[in-house]
Design a protein around this nucleic acid. Structure first.
Lengths: 146, 146
DNA sequence: GGCATATAGTTGTTTGTGCAACTATCCAAA
DNA sequence: TTTGGATAGTTGCACAAACAACTATATGCC
């Protein structure tokens, strides 16, 4: 049992994601302070659309690791904010393709800068090689459980 | 700028806590399968009460890294499930001390086993020294942002 | 063509989070 | 002793997640 040695206090932080919660809260505060009227969850959808727009809601589910109802409602809210548009696919009428509005394109640079800034604050004083190990472990955890 | 080297794809996982989300989902499924009628958030409150009961809601806020309204509602729901009781402090009538019921005491062993099992599955194939580095980094992240 | 099945998306319900505003109580200083 | 500020907890609101049940459309097979 090589990995069976959890002291209880350590178990807790892993399950609750203390660190990632703290990162998300800090970024949310930066968005609010900057007057970006955007939740972290909405940002995480835009994040993938900035890489490639015109993808389906199902593809957004896979990319953001969320279920279909969550994406339906996030897209609902992003549509209300005039940041995305649903466009019915011509080939398959079950599919909505999601496109960014001009307004959303304007948000990319500023929000990404705030995200990088947040991560730099989070990882201040952490040596680069330890960050690499940490990323590697978190990726394996994800792969082990998905 | 020693830590300024985020490739964008990596940034996303850090902010969204992909790994810890996956762990929490896996544990929730184990609870459901085992017939434990308990959310991960409720479990995280019980977790601290098992270590020490009779603490105030404010102390639960600090321990679980949640705000006061969140704890109010988690305690509400735990009370509905007959797992905890609010007892007004005699010294300071503003304070509720939270005590476990017998029913909650019975849940400890089984739920902690499932949590350890989940972590073992998550960290399968990860060498112990890398786990240590990862824990260390996540703790620093938390300390940097709190 | 017609039917079974799979896929894309939506809706309802319960639970939790974050913020602001609120009540009740305590405490300390004038 | 009163009054003003701090602390503990609650409530309302908007947003999000997980699950189940639902509609609409597509596809493959007879």
């Amino acid at each position: 049992m090589p990995n069976n040695q959890f002291k209880r206090g350590e178990l807790y932080s892993f399950v609750t994601g203390k660190a990632s919660t703290a990162i998300a809260r800090r970024l949310q505060k930066k968005f609010n302070t900057a007057g970006l009227n955007l939740t972290i969850e909405q940002w995480s959808v835009l994040y993938h659309l900035w890489k490639q727009e015109g993808i389906s809601q199902q593809e957004l589910c896979n990319a953001t690791f969320r279920d279909k109802p969550s994406i339906t409602r996030l897209v609902d809210n992003l549509e209300k904010l005039n940041l995305v548009k649903r466009v019915a696919s011509e080939h398959d009428r079950r599919i909505n393709l999601i496109y960014l509005t001009k307004q959303a394109q304007k948000l990319q640079e500023e929000s990404m800068l705030l995200a990088e800034e947040t991560l730099n604050e989070a990882l201040e004083t952490v040596p680069a090689d330890k960050i690499e190990v940490c990323k590697e472990v978190l990726q394996i955890v994800y792969d082990n459980l998905k």
